[in-house]
Design a binder for these strands. Structure first.
Lengths: 191, 191
DNA sequence: TACGGCGACGTACCGACGGTATGCAAAGCG
DNA sequence: CGCTTTGCATACCGTCGGTACGTCGCCGTA
């Protein structure tokens, strides 16, 4: 399967010959179904993304409180982001193989959508009035934070401890939000 | 120059022939100085990184207050991250071309070091007792947040407004920290 | 049933690219 | 002044992504 080869060897080091040999087909068949190597990668990318997104959504069910939802989602995301396939295909090579634009389009309607939903829920619980652009900005920031954190978690010598630290740190940031909400602090105006 | 070619076309689509043609040398000369295409990229990567790091450090000078320092550093980072060379070479293709390990080693002693320094200054201003691992975790989170935010900023239809939104969002998070510090809130214990 | 067209592959091949082997002039050195 | 080493130039090779073209089988039609 192409997914394993891309995950273990990376995009550039995975030859089409190796893929077709592993899948028991020929190059003709491959090029009948996909327009090229990049299109094949994109199909794999979408599958991995869809799986991850489904998993995260599943973890969100059952939580009504936004903060609880956020914590559950964070935990699920940290789990997803530690899987070699997601790390390699989506986080590491996605942006460079697909180009940032296509990468973003794909993310926009899967995993990032989940993050956005969570952020929306959390920030709507506060006293702030945020327009859509500001919500997206917050979501981007959290998405990036958690992606990077996930990378460092899964390459740490003790991933479990590292994941705990990340949860603590993000929880701390969320606590800061709560504190601001309780204090009725307004959003600092953009200058 | 190889840097421009890598920036505009990307790593994979930049042939060594194009590089040597542009630099008025031959492949023999190139392979005399670098052990291969990846090593050349790595050299370019280091230069871009060093430049960015220097620029950020410069912006930190003159600020004593940690929060002011953080804001200045954030602004400088958002500037750096909008430059095509840094975006493409460091953020987009760095991880996939160098591999995450080498990428991290490089970042560790340049731009990330700056972020770490800032985070250290900010968090030391609070009443919390953080060990080094926790500091690194916070720094990773902020680094990832700002890298991703920078990507979205520079690909936004109005980059200036987007940058302002990012500054607002991060400022909000920092304000949350301040609120927690003022309230004397402890770090939530890792479970 | 004969047949033509078409979709689903298989196969042989091409051009480009990264990398290497070898040559060779100039500089350093005893 | 010879001999080694450095610094590069050039010709070439293996691999890989992609393509051109052939082939086999199915399906509608007369």
């Amino acid at each position: 399967m192409a997914e394993e080869l891309f995950t273990t060897n990376g995009y550039a080091s995975t030859s089409l010959d190796a893929i077709v040999a592993g899948a028991q087909v020929t190059k003709g068949a491959l090029y009948h179904h996909f327009s090229g190597k990049q299109a094949l990668f994109e199909a794999v990318f979408e599958r991995v993304e869809a799986d991850a997104s489904k998993r995260i959504q599943k973890s969100l069910r059952g939580h009504q409180d936004p903060w609880e939802k956020a914590r559950a989602g964070l935990r699920a995301f940290l789990g997803v982001v530690q899987e070699p396939g997601y790390r390699r295909i989506v986080i590491q090579e996605g942006p460079s193989v697909l180009g940032y634009e296509r990468y973003r389009e794909q993310e926009e309607r899967s995993t990032f959508a989940n993050v956005l939903e969570i952020v929306r829920a959390v920030l709507s619980a506060g006293p702030w009035e945020l327009d859509e652009a500001m919500l997206q900005t917050f979501a981007r920031i959290f998405f990036g934070a958690m992606s990077t954190a996930g990378e460092s978690v899964s390459s740490a010598e003790d991933p479990i401890a590292a994941a705990t630290r990340v949860e603590t740190a993000i929880g701390f940031i969320l606590a800061g939000f709560q504190a601001l909400a309780d204090a009725g602090v307004e959003l600092p105006a953009g200058e």
